[in-house]
Design a protein around this nucleic acid. Structure first.
Lengths: 341, 341
DNA sequence: CTGAAAGCGCTTACAG
DNA sequence: CTGAAAGCGCTTACAG
């Protein structure tokens, strides 16, 4: 392994000398200020000649702007990579670099890390992909956007979690004839899970339906599996609203273990439109989410906050789409098949 | 939206003044050099008093070390987040920050971006999660590790792609009685896909088995689906080695569309151990990968290269584990069921 | 429109 | 073991 020479880059002084101007003039050139055309040309030639690129570090030090944002990734998680990627691309487009900070543990651990980061002066804004303590928004010296809550905590910024599509899911199931529901929720430390559960309960109430339980799961397939296995023999549930596709897969699996067929004996609805769920058997009815739009959206809002511009409305409501597939159908008539033996 | 006051942090000079020493002494304190105990105590108190944290930017500017690494994320991709997270945690543990760079497009686009990044002086090393042009390793001023190739290109660093578990997969299927195989490969621009394909062909050859084709797919479930649907009516294939779980799900789905049962009429083997595949029906036999170990491994190797230390062997071979599940069984006797009609 | 001076907050020699 | 000087590569006033 050869340790390489540190790259030797031209400085603003060398460019100035080659162009026959002062380095201040080069600085103006770099920042796009007015120069006499003849001067500009000379500088331009020198810059090209030396393949000069300004030292961002020196610039940041002087301007006290780092042009850097941080994204906080909770771990473990199954966060969609596409969201992260869109956030990254959007940041770069606005000339920000993106620092990736992965944090194990719960929202306390994340919050500590975010506080430290916010006070370090290293970044101008922070996007957290999971909930934080509620007071961070008001005490942080830089804007913090979180996907974990969407009221006006967090300086009014957060909003990736949105339970409203649950309404569409339930109305769709009702249109098939369902009246008896079960919800397998996600971990209640997540706002998205709380939102979906809340909207589920509200909608059941509002439409005069019957909910036969809300199981607080942990986003895992196993939690879906267990929820079904634990259902009593005489359950009236005909439709399950699962908090995501993974859980829905577990639900299907649990149903099969009871010799129930999906959707003949039980309709199952997922969330996320994972590719693999499209090819599952049965394929999963689900909510398709435009992750790119989501990541872009979040980053644009963060950048607006940093710049002190009015923060745009989140377009979250328009990025969810209901996709009916094989796992949902008309409700069975009468009781579900009994257990083996 | 209130634009916050820029955070005002104490400088090394203020600490020095409060402690009654020179700022050079504080600098020594920060770098852990020897100080007279009495001096150290004074500085220590002042640092705590002012909640002083050194400005990394100024330090970097002077030392010309940025303490930053970049990770290049190809898009679109389904790269495991856990790998990214482990890479991030490992980098932080070694006092590096991690810059996330997401790049759309093929290896040319990525390579351009990596070259630019390497020459920018902003980062000390780069981990690319997908293949790059082969010459980058030798021309880059900073170490570049890629997951895309694992020979001694790339300054001998790369190595996340490893086809060797394919041997285990085939031997396992042979132990069940299979002799007639099909491989649905991944996109051949990925070294991991090329490796698996190569090892598949070698193993078939070595063990005197029959391969009834290699389908060059694109990592999608559809490619698996199509591969099966396109098989002739009288195919002798009894086992499919899919390049990953998603493709395997498509293979299962394709089999069902021909009224073949899995594994009765066809055994299907996946790769990745996606959680959702564990709960698929049938559950997928697969290769479980320790993504955390993989990410950690890659980052440790990159850091070693940066420090000019001998680069440790990759532990990749030990992080893959064969997990047999329901999608594989003994081969059928005689032909597979004919198509409908 | 352009140049000479000062300074961002550190670290690295160089003295003592 | 500690301090005074210089400098990393820029930008921001201040003159002209």
């Amino acid at each position: 392994m050869i340790k390489p020479e540190p790259p030797r880059r031209a400085t603003i002084y060398e460019v100035a000398r080659l162009a026959g101007v002062s380095h201040q003039t080069v600085s103006r050139y770099l920042r796009g200020e007015r120069l006499k055309p003849a001067t500009r040309e000379k500088v331009d030639a020198a810059v090209k000649d030396l393949d000069y690129r300004p030292n961002q570090l020196a610039r940041s030090m002087r301007t006290r702007r780092t042009n850097r944002l941080a994204v906080v990734l909770p771990m473990p998680s199954t966060f969609p990579l596409r969201l992260l990627s869109a956030a990254s691309a959007t940041a770069h487009k606005a000339d920000y670099e993106l620092e990736l900070v992965s944090v194990e543990g719960g929202s306390e651990a994340r919050s500590d890390r975010v506080r430290e980061l916010a006070e370090s002066g290293r970044v101008e804004g922070i996007l957290s992909l999971a909930s934080l303590d509620e007071d961070i928004g008001s005490t942080s010296p830089v804007p913090v956007l979180t996907t974990g809550d969407y009221d006006d905590q967090m300086r009014g910024l957060g909003l990736l979690a949105d339970g409203s599509p649950v309404v569409d899911v339930i109305e769709y199931l009702v249109s098939l004839g369902h009246q008896d529901f079960l919800h397998v929720a996600g971990s209640q430390s997540w706002a998205s899970a709380r939102n979906r559960k809340r909207v589920y309960l509200e909608t059941i109430e509002r439409l005069g339906l019957r909910s036969h339980g809300v199981v607080d799961g942990n986003w895992s397939a196993r939690s879906g599996y267990d929820a079904i296995v634990d259902l009593p023999d005489d359950t009236e549930v005909t439709a399950v609203v699962a908090v995501n596709d993974t859980v829905a897969m577990g639900v299907v699996r649990g149903a099969l273990s009871r010799r129930w067929q999906v959707p003949r004996d039980l309709s199952v609805f997922g969330w996320d439109d994972d590719e693999i769920a499209r090819f599952a058997t049965p394929s999963l009815s689900t909510i398709a989410i435009d992750r790119e739009a989501q990541g872009r959206d979040a980053m644009l809002r963060l950048i607006a906050a940093i710049r002190g511009e009015p923060v745009p409305e989140s377009g979250v409501r328009s990025i969810n789409r209901l996709v009916p597939r094989e796992s949902t159908g008309r409700p069975r008539q009468g009781p579900a098949p009994a257990r083996q033996g």
